[in-house]
Design a protein around this nucleic acid. Sequence first.
DNA 1: ATTATTGGTTTAATTATGCAACCATTCTTG
DNA 2: CAAGAATGGTTGCATAATTAAACCAATAAT
Lengths: 150, 150
Amino acid sequence: MVARKSLKGDYCPSARSLDVIGDWWSLLIVRDAFDGLTRFGEFQKSLGIAKNILTERLRTLVASGILELVPAGDSGTRMEYRLTTMGKDLFPVMVALRQFGERYLFAPAEEHSLLVDRTTGQPVRLDIRAQDGRSVGPDETVILKVPEET
Amino acid sequence: MVARKSLKGDYCPSARSLDVIGDWWSLLIVRDAFDGLTRFGEFQKSLGIAKNILTERLRTLVASGILELVPAGDSGTRMEYRLTTMGKDLFPVMVALRQFGERYLFAPAEEHSLLVDRTTGQPVRLDIRAQDGRSVGPDETVILKVPEET
DNA sequence: ATTATTGGTTTAATTATGCAACCATTCTTG
DNA sequence: CAAGAATGGTTGCATAATTAAACCAATAAT
């Protein structure tokens, strides 16, 4: 392996996102962060990830601006990892993954965790809509490519 | 390494999704498939991925039901890889990744490809809404955990 | 008929990941 | 306040995953 390909320079926004959070563990860490976990040990226990890998991933997520290290409230010098605003904006990605998994990766009767509206307790929906409010799928959209710069 | 951890049995739908498409290349292949690519060589050229890895990933995506092999129209015996219905249902994941990338991973003046409504040419939006239509963010939702079975 | 393209497979080298052992600092508890 | 436990790592080694490059059979083009 020469080096894993970097997609930093790709013109496609999805590719750049995957460059930041597209590895095996990062989105699972982010999921746990959305779930309220903040401490190294919590992530490690929850994910069963090797500690050295967790160290590196947390460092990368902090460097990317998705997590930040803030002093833990418990009157000590310990720190905790929290989602930044940028990190919280991965919410739609998590919801989209969840929706896909719910639909295709569980047996009909199999139970699974559920994302619900805090106030009503009802499940939430994810929609992709045109400006006029129509719901659109992949066949109703086109990706406009930006021509190369000269 | 004993083996990369499998998340098949996780009760969290996001985790199961990541188990299927959470590796480094799969979503990039899916992105290209949404972009209209169908042939082995097209993916290989577009992604710069090693051919043996591409072989394995395509096979896995077919086995997962995200891609299917169909006879290519060009009067030969060659096959092409096409998104299944299940594969097309990854559309929201791709749009969410795109939206995140657009917001955070491009310089203000930097141009990027754009997903637009085919009929109007206007950009599309992605929203997460409660049943009553309110747009909800991470702080307005809770994940209900299914208790362990006894 | 000959050559080029497609769609791979195989091999060897390198990187990434995991596990276990270790360690310094901070908490807790008697 | 001393001693042990918990936290949050680091280090070293073994194994798995990824890569580039060479190779190859079947098809397509000339």
